[in-house]
Nucleic acid binder design. Structure first.
Length: 840
RNA sequence: GCCCCCGUAGCCCAACUGGCAGAGGCAGCGGCCUCAAACACCGCACGGUGUGGGUUCGAAUCCCACCGGGGGCACCA
């Protein structure tokens, strides 16, 4: 467990001179944690109804063990945002949950011969205790686990809504297969073409699987990103755009000899249609099989076998020679009537475009490689000025003038595309179209520890949804050896579970034995959080209206595409179903960096893990949290070797001592020292701006400055009893509570607040800076000569440009440098700068 | 190979978006305490912003090229 009292280390004895009140984080943690638990201060439902609302959400945790350094950083950042908004007077929803289905639980269960649920829920309890001790301002009444039947019941319900609308469907396609483990693998379980668990090279296998039709939303997923611009990291938006991969082009139909239906291809370069010298269809497509001439059948079969033997590693190698077979058939180019051979190859993908391409070897490198491999003709149709690709082996994909292209000769690319698309449309053999590289989302897994797919397969009725009143379809209890991979889902061998009557006709039928990808669970949890215990519906519309969309989402960049894209898709689909009233789930997104060590990411296999529990035992919760936030901008990686939790502790000790001294002093009457008041006001002003803009590390630097200024005021200025010093210390405690809640609470208490009875620092109002204290009467103006600083004068802040110019030129140094000559130019930026340019 | 981000002091990082390069911290050094030390406290920054050009009265900031580091995509027609 994290941060227990065991193993005290002298590190914390950053004590004051003898007799003083020394910083003691052990005591603070032990004193305030139970008080906070009792007060339960962050319940979203307890805030007064008239408060404006904020929904602050951290990407929920996977319960793989106790919390680690990565959690500590991410949740510390989210907590700063949540606590700030609470102090600013918002009603804040900051819920906690677990993404608790998934493969690691299953693997652990197999290894230790136990029930994945036991392992999972034990880890969740450990993490929950750690979160509490780590002082995250969660609303513990809004808690969920995706593996609870009360949750996955609604995951199944949503799946059925998708199914009704045709957004969930089954199809056969090639999926990742691990020959060693005898199981299908998710894309994310394939690392570098190898099985993440056993290291075996992954191959493809054709299987019938469930998909979500995310491709139907490709354009909207793209368009709606404009609303996220400026609120999401640009990097994430770019990655999503690339992933969706919109490509404009045309469909062109080629008649095929001996076939009534033409074959349609997608091309982004219809202008090069006259340069098409052959056609290629995806070797593993039904089309290849159909087009293949009888005498070529054996050859194609042999080729397919050869392709299937390839591992992903080999398949993805870019410098691999092109392979393929001639199908013994010819297509006809619709614009010039030319007869071109039809080939099959694995470099054309079955599931992109139409699974067939027109090959223009002169202007596409892949086609050229293929043409040279099989001695096919190369015809230049765009004159780019570059040498002949047939000679050089280098295709010329650039712009130029069309040649050898009949009616579009002499045109440039854009004009040629428009013209040729018109011609194709007139003849009914083509049209402009858009293609996306986004694929439908494969959601079925042959795994146990996931949400069962609520479908019954009936020999007569086909795929039949489980009736709503029978949800959830619960997982049976399996453990240990029952879960060992055997090529089909472990659920398939539980006879009493799979055999059911068809809900429609009553005949003998069987349940679908697959479970859902855990990304399905996490695609809607932010909706469930507004009403996690509602057993009538997945979410309460009135609560959704109150809280959604999420105001600030916080999480790692590793989910830049999958989770965030899936969640955006779910939101749009649910909107279309009329279930919710918004189309984007997360208004703003903050990606935190990673915690690394000595320049390398930490991992068990490298043996360079920094243990969070140990750090917390050494330095305390506050020092670790403060170190995470102070290390740098939140989106940058933190190298734990470069930062100093001991240094953070030192700062907290200074604040502690300050509050202690001020708290013990008999504060005098009045406003107090003006200079101290000004420093405090400036700090409030700047720190507020900095927190708003997520520059938390700089905000902490400002708090350190304030601490230093107050220290000086106590030792060498108006003293600890000065009202302005007390005000400064009080405000410091409030602002510090975002980062170091235990120390801040302790200081708050020292300053005379009855924390035990509810006067906590978390309920203090965020300070405001009095504008009068921010205004300065005079400012130091820099006088430059030719851009170099040559003097300074103190001037009124309100000074006019002409006045300032005269005063600057009148100073002795400048007058001396001018020597009576007229400056060639004087730039005045009142009131802070004057630059005098001397004649050359 | 293509695209994106980042290079400021020994280290982590600031610099009001073109105006005095240094706020904060770590490490270090000196002082003060001490029998001595640790802790605390006080004090200490000639690096000109990766390199080379350019724009400008003025560049860490804008533009170009290169070097170094990180990330994403890589047969998507």
């Amino acid at each position: 467990m994290v941060g227990t009292r065991t193993g005290r280390v002298p590190m914390s004895d950053t004590s004051t001179p003898s007799g003083g009140d020394r910083y003691d984080w052990h005591t603070a943690q032990d004193r305030w944690l139970p008080v906070w638990e009792k007060l339960d201060q962050f319940r979203a439902s307890e805030y007064p109804a008239d408060r404006p609302r904020k929904y602050v959400l951290d990407m929920f945790a996977y319960p793989s063990g106790d919390l680690h350094m990565g959690h500590a950083e991410a949740f510390a950042i989210g907590d700063v945002v949540a606590r700030y908004h609470v102090l600013r007077g918002y009603a804040v929803l900051h819920p906690v949950g677990w993404d608790s289905f998934g493969l690691p639980a299953e693997n652990a269960a197999i290894k230790r011969d136990l029930d994945p649920a036991k392992w999972t829920y034990a880890n969740i309890e450990t993490q929950a205790e750690s979160f509490k001790r780590y002082a995250i301002s969660f609303d513990w009444s809004m808690r969920l686990h995706t593996s609870d039947p009360g949750y996955y019941r609604w995951t199944q319900w949503l799946f059925l809504r998708m199914f009704e609308r045709g957004l969930a469907y089954r199809k056969e396609s090639a999926v990742n297969w691990c020959p060693q483990d005898q199981t299908v693998l998710a894309n994310e379980q394939v690392v570098g073409g190898r099985c993440e668990r056993c290291g075996t090279a992954v191959t493809k296998r054709s299987l019938t699987q469930w998909y979500f039709k995310i491709t139907e939303y490709a354009q909207r997923l793209l368009d709606d990103m404009t609303a996220l611009e400026g609120h999401w990291p640009e990097r994430v938006l770019t990655m999503q755009r690339n992933w969706i991969g919109r490509s404009e082009g045309a469909r062109v139909s080629f008649a095929v000899e001996g076939r009534t239906e033409p074959v349609t291809v997608f091309t982004s370069r219809p202008d090069t249609l006259y340069g098409a010298t052959f056609m290629v269809v995806a070797a593993d497509s039904a089309l290849a099989d159909e087009l293949c001439a009888p005498e070529r059948r054996a050859e194609l079969a042999g080729y397919l076998e050869q392709v299937a033997r390839l591992s992903d590693i080999e398949r993805q190698s870019t410098d691999r020679d092109k392979t393929g077979v001639f199908l013994g058939r010819y297509a006809v180019n619709p614009v010039n009537g030319e007869r071109i051979p039809v080939w099959a190859s694995d470099y054309v993908l079955a599931d992109y475009g139409t699974g067939a391409i027109m090959a223009v070897p002169a202007h596409d490198q892949r086609d050229l490689d293929f043409a040279r491999q099989f001695d096919l003709p190369v015809r230049v149709v765009v004159d780019t000025g570059a040498p002949d690709p047939a000679q050089t082996g280098v295709a010329t994909p650039g712009e130029g003038t069309l040649v050898n292209s009949g009616p579009i000769d002499g045109l440039t690319k854009g004009d040629a595309i428009r013209r040729i698309v018109d011609i194709l449309a007139e003849r009914g053999v083509g049209a402009a179209t858009v293609s996306y590289r986004l694929r439908d989302w494969l959601l079925s897994r042959q795994r146990f520890w996931g949400c069962p797919i609520p479908i019954v397969h009936c020999p007569t009725c086909g795929e039949v949804p489980v009736p709503e009143d029978q949800l959830p379809v619960r997982l049976p209890e399996l453990s240990g050896a029952d879960l060992r991979p055997k090529g089909v889902s472990p659920l398939a061998s539980v006879a009493e579970w799979i055999n059911v009557a068809c809900p429609r006709c009553g005949a003998d039928a069987h349940r679908d034995t697959d479970t859902m990808d855990t990304f399905v669970d996490s695609s809607w949890y932010y909706l469930r959080f507004v009403s996690p215990y509602d057993d009538q519906r997945p979410f309460d519309p009135a609560e959704l209206r109150k809280w959604m969309p999420v105001d600030q989402y916080i999480g790692g960049a590793e989910h830049a595409i999958l989770h965030l894209l899936y969640s955006r898709f779910f939101t749009k689909a649910l909107y279309d179903m009329g279930l919710i009233e918004f189309t984007e789930p997360f208004k703003a997104l903050l990606n935190q960096g990673q915690v690394i060590l000595n320049g390398a990411s930490m991992s068990k296999s490298k043996g360079n893990l920094v243990d969070l529990g140990e750090e917390l035992r050494k330095y305390g919760v506050d020092a670790v949290r403060l170190t995470m936030i102070f290390a740098g901008p939140p989106d940058e990686d933190i190298d734990w070797a470069d930062v100093s939790p001991a240094g953070s502790g030192k700062f907290l000790a200074r604040v502690w001592r300050l509050a202690s001294e001020v708290g013990a002093a008999e504060t005098t009457r009045g406003e107090g020292d003006t200079e101290v008041r000004r420093v405090t006001a400036r700090t409030v002003h700047e720190a507020t701006q900095l927190v708003e803009t997520h520059r938390f590390n700089v905000a902490i630097a400002r708090l350190m400055e304030l601490t230093n200024a107050l220290r000086k005021a106590v030792d060498q200025g108006p003293g600890a009893a000065d009202p302005a010093v007390r005000e400064g210390a009080t405000i410091l405690a409030i602002m510090l509570s975002l980062f170091a809640p235990y120390c801040a609470e302790e200081c708050w208490s020292k300053l005379g607040h009855a924390v035990e009875t509810g006067d906590t620092v978390s309920r203090a109002p965020w300070p405001r800076a009095e504008p009068a204290l921010l205004a300065e009467d005079t400012v130091v103006c820099v006088i430059q000569v030719n851009g170099k600083v040559r003097g300074r004068i103190e001037v009124p802040t309100s000074i006019g440009a002409d006045d300032l110019r005269d005063r600057a030129l009148g100073t002795d140094t400048i007058a001396g440098l001018l020597g009576g000559a007229e400056p060639s130019k004087v730039i005045v930026r009142a009131p802070k700068l004057v630059n005098v340019v001397l004649p050359a």
